[in-house]
Amino acid sequence: MEHDNIYLTNLRDEKQNMWTGLANYFRKRSMWMLYYCTGCGAIELPPTMTSRYDMERLGMGPMATPRQADLLLITGYLSVKTLKRVIWSYEQMQEPKYVVGFGSCPINGGIYWDAYPVINHLEAFMPVDMSIAGCMPRPQAIIDAFEKLMDEIQQGKAVGYKRYRKHYDWYKRNQDLVLNRQSAVLTPYVDPFASMPTAAELMAQESEDSHV
């Protein structure tokens, strides 16, 4: 049978059966995104979303809650504190779900590679389906990445969520390493004021010290 239209062509992909191919076709055409604007990348989204570049022509739109979203945008650097919230949001999302990392920061830390609160490789904590290099990528690059992601969804390659499910222990181990660390990384800090003395006590102690 000859099919010249793209969706039927894709159905011929050996890796997918007819139903997943069909489902993927519709999935890629209606993506609701949750943008987790942690970094500089947030500023590139308004032009991408509004009339200048208009991502709605790709069938994408903003969504208010993680439970209703398909696409999680990590727009820039992630501090440890936000990483925890991002993981919560990601785990709340319904499958199938996709993650796009914006800029170099989620790839390898970017200019924050040596900063103490910012993680370096997002890929180690959650599956990333698409990364956009650049600091910060322009809206054209973002649209381009979305189109690529749609292709990958159609071909059944954007399966980060399955990877997350299958290798949950690997991701969990990395998450725990950073989020639930039990000991100091370099030098443990002993707070000399852990007992919370009052000012009067401190002054009395100091005048004692100076008399000795």
Partner: peptide
């Protein structure tokens, strides 16, 4: 406090 050592020890792939 050395932020670079900290970052490499905790967030780099080797550190992990």
């Amino acid at each position: 406090f050395n932020p670079k050592d900290y970052s490499l020890a905790l967030y780099s792939l080797k550190g992990m």
